[in-house]
Amino acid sequence: MNTFLIHFAIAAYAVTWAIGKLNWFDDSAAMTILVFLVAFTFLWLSSILYDRNYFRKIPKVLGLFFFFLKELIMANLKIAYDIITPRYFMNPSIIALPLKASTDLEISLLANMLTLTPGSLSVDVSEDRKELYVHLLYADDEKVESIKKELKDGFEKRILAITR
């Protein structure tokens, strides 16, 4: 985390330097993002020398981000289809998702991501923090177990790989 903050600051400083001192480019957003990404990539590659852990984690964070975007768009298309067509295909249910995540950060990340993705809405955490109650839109009785497994493999596994 510290390494990330330092790298972020250095890359941001490189961008302002390139704009102000060198007059490399005009003030367009595309060039700014490009310069920032190039600087950040070089810093990330250099971290293999002093912070192996950080070097391994950045690709996982990117993977989680793109997985999240994909799920967000898929969920929206599914719900949009259901809202526009006159019949309801939904079969809502509230399930108890057993949690492997234990710290506050992990649980809140998982709950927030579940709220934004596949037809699910996190309701509450049980008192002993072992279960997360999730309101699902598409949960047929026989499919509940496979949906639980999907959620655990999809989000929880990726989040735990980053935080631990």
């Binding site: 929206n76 809202i83 309801y88 993705t117 809405l121």
Partner: peptide, 24 residues
């Protein structure tokens, strides 16, 4: 779609879960 869903869906919880995603 989110606005139509807000009017059409049957109960509070389904509306809520459609709105958060659609509006965001």
């Amino acid at each position: 779609v989110a606005s139509i869903g807000l009017l059409r869906l049957p109960d509070f919880y389904t509306r809520m879960s459609a709105i958060t995603k659609g509006a965001t």
